[in-house]
Write a protein that binds this DNA or RNA. Structure first.
Lengths: 235, 235
DNA sequence: TAATAGCACGAACATACGTTCTGGTCAAGG
DNA sequence: CCTTGACCAGAACGTATGTTCGTGCTATTA
């Protein structure tokens, strides 16, 4: 198990070439030429570089576009095996406005009407589209709130966490919602279940008991929770 | 109504060229040639494309490396001013490999730093760089694990959550760590505090009590938890 | 009217760059 | 000994690609 298995015939030069390709592209915004790979990987001839590039393509670590200058890129396989985090230039980033804080003792704040203008001063949070369900993305109107205080631990949400929400007044069973309980003057995050005459509000923490509300008019659904993000600080 | 401010002297063709440059680069991994810009931006001559590229460089929307094939890239200015409309803020996404599951009853899996095989096929997760601290990004080596089971609710982490981690064997006080308690055969996520002769492991949930370990050799630190993401499903 | 500035066209040119060929070295194996 | 396969050198070749130039066209301004 510990046997240092030589990874399918990749020697230091192969790795050097991969590394050069990757770092050069990151630095310049475009891939290197074969001659540039030569210099940086300390290869003496373009044919040598070409040789290694062919090997690497065979093994699936890079992709080449033949006949195209700088037509090189590393593949997902490279990123995974080398534990590299790659700047993904293609993907979809959603910029979600951060519109305030969510506190147990206050109703949920909402974004101010105009979404199209992107000059909200309150900041924003970037989320990869692939982290959200396509439906959420398509419906849009997502906004973010920072959780204030410890009062939502029953929802497994802590002080400082960020919740991504979508405005909604009616939701389906099983969705996590932000509700305002107007008899208690309290905002809470719970899984929502409509059980005929009553409403069941289920905490995310499975060790805690559900709340049953017999008068549905006291439960005002403010939105659907789409995602929770907890960032750890580093001191 | 909101005055839609004209972007300083940029007409549709300027914008088209920018757009082409940006999307082409995203799609192919390298920038387009001038001739390719011509086709895609519906310009009739390379000199026209060159003309617009010069204007765009003057205005600071792109950067050119003269005499170098495909030596083009959009600048931060472009991303800022067009970021939301275009919806891809380049350069900001980290692709973090998903290397397995984290379960209380098993040690933490790791990405094979030996660059060897990869057994977990679950792909990767995209996280905006701005969500992580610069230190974490710089140090790299981030990997992601999916939480399996309810056994980490004391860490406010639930079944299905994704934790982003960084390998580490010693950490500073106050950091959340994944530790393997070798006397109990258990992996757990806790805030770590070294208190002289003993170690305090503090659950994230403030209503729960800390664990004190008097024999530090039973606590094997496996990594630092950088972030937790909880995605809600939509049925 | 003439002059000027912003823009467009197409072709010619120079060079950046991928590709390929010839010929090598060196170790392993028959 | 010869063969084979992995690796290396350097140069020649041809295409891909950036650059430039002469020539327009149109609107504005003096």
């Amino acid at each position: 198990m510990m046997a240092r298995r030589k990874k399918e015939g990749l020697n230091e030069k192969h790795i050097k070439v991969l590394h050069v390709l990757y770092t050069y592209t990151g630095k310049h915004g475009y891939p290197p030429t074969i001659r540039e790979i030569c210099e940086r990987a300390e290869l003496s001839s373009t044919s040598v570089a070409n040789y290694y590039l062919e090997r690497l393509e065979e093994k699936g670590y890079i992709q080449r576009d033949r006949g195209i200058s700088r037509g090189l890129k590393v593949t997902l396989k490279y990123m995974k095996e080398f534990g590299v985090q790659v700047r993904n230039a293609v993907d979809e980033l959603l910029q979600i406005p951060m519109v305030g804080r969510i506190v147990a003792s206050e109703p949920v704040p909402f974004p101010t009407s105009d979404f199209s203008s992107y000059d909200y001063e309150s900041g924003s949070i970037n989320i990869a589209e692939s982290l959200l369900s396509p439906q959420h993305v398509r419906q849009g109107n997502l906004f973010a709130l920072e959780v204030s205080g410890d009062s939502m631990i029953d929802a497994m949400v802590n002080d400082g966490d960020v919740v991504i929400m979508q405005p909604a007044t009616n939701v389906r069973d099983g969705e996590m919602v932000a509700v305002w309980l107007n008899d208690k003057d309290e905002t809470t995050l719970k899984y929502f279940y409509n059980e005929g005459s009553r409403v069941r509000l289920q905490p995310a923490n499975p060790t805690m008991d559900a709340i049953y509300v017999n008068d549905p008019s006291t439960v005002e659904i403010r939105g659907r929770v789409v995602m929770v993000v907890r960032q750890m600080e580093m001191q």
